[in-house]
Design a protein around this nucleic acid. Sequence first.
DNA 1: TTGACATATCGAAAAAAATCGATATATAAT
DNA 2: ATTATATATCGATTTTTTTCGATATGTCAA
Lengths: 104, 104
Amino acid sequence: MEPIDIFKALSNETRLNILQWLKEPEKHFPKQGAHLPKEVSYKGGVCVGDIQEKAKASQSTVSHYLNMMQKAGLLESVRHGQWTYYRRNEEVIRQFAEYFKTEI
Amino acid sequence: MEPIDIFKALSNETRLNILQWLKEPEKHFPKQGAHLPKEVSYKGGVCVGDIQEKAKASQSTVSHYLNMMQKAGLLESVRHGQWTYYRRNEEVIRQFAEYFKTEI
DNA sequence: TTGACATATCGAAAAAAATCGATATATAAT
DNA sequence: ATTATATATCGATTTTTTTCGATATGTCAA
């Protein structure tokens, strides 16, 4: 866990939004999951296209964002067919919150 | 409290270090306070020159850093004669930790 | 195997941040 | 008043980040 990478990842409004949206995917991506059975969809995260639509940035930008957040440890991804589902890595997020509280 | 500004301020190693140093000023700035009575020195924070020396960056850069961190709410400053003492704003830091834990 | 779609990667341009030396401002000491 | 010291601000350059369109890769369906 590299705190600096996490701070960097979250010092952008869109990326911060994405992380918050993924906290309650059913709420923020209601029409998602046309493609796959439900048990995969939400547990497995939200696909790039749905996130892109909500983020209102280009496909490449959003893909880049998600990759950056994953490298920072905030997200993890599962590939299912042609879709990549991103979801929060709650363990890292919890760790970081703890780090901030105790070390910062 | 603007979370994004706080994330930005801390997405730099030197600035993150400064915030941590100021958590235990006596430990990290042992020879400080040649100029002023002790009751002012530590309670009031650490002066820019001492921080600069430890940060190993130019005077203008460090001044800029401190200003940025203050605008983000992480630090507060007290002027005493020709010196400006910076110290942590524990209230904002605590608030931010709480924000992260509950909202992120 | 071809065509359609989802996502990732590449390369470049634009925007923002980092960083410094020089200078200004404020205070203190002589 | 002059000089010295601490910090802030300015202006410019370099570096990093943002952001996109174009293209590549991988997968599915016909």
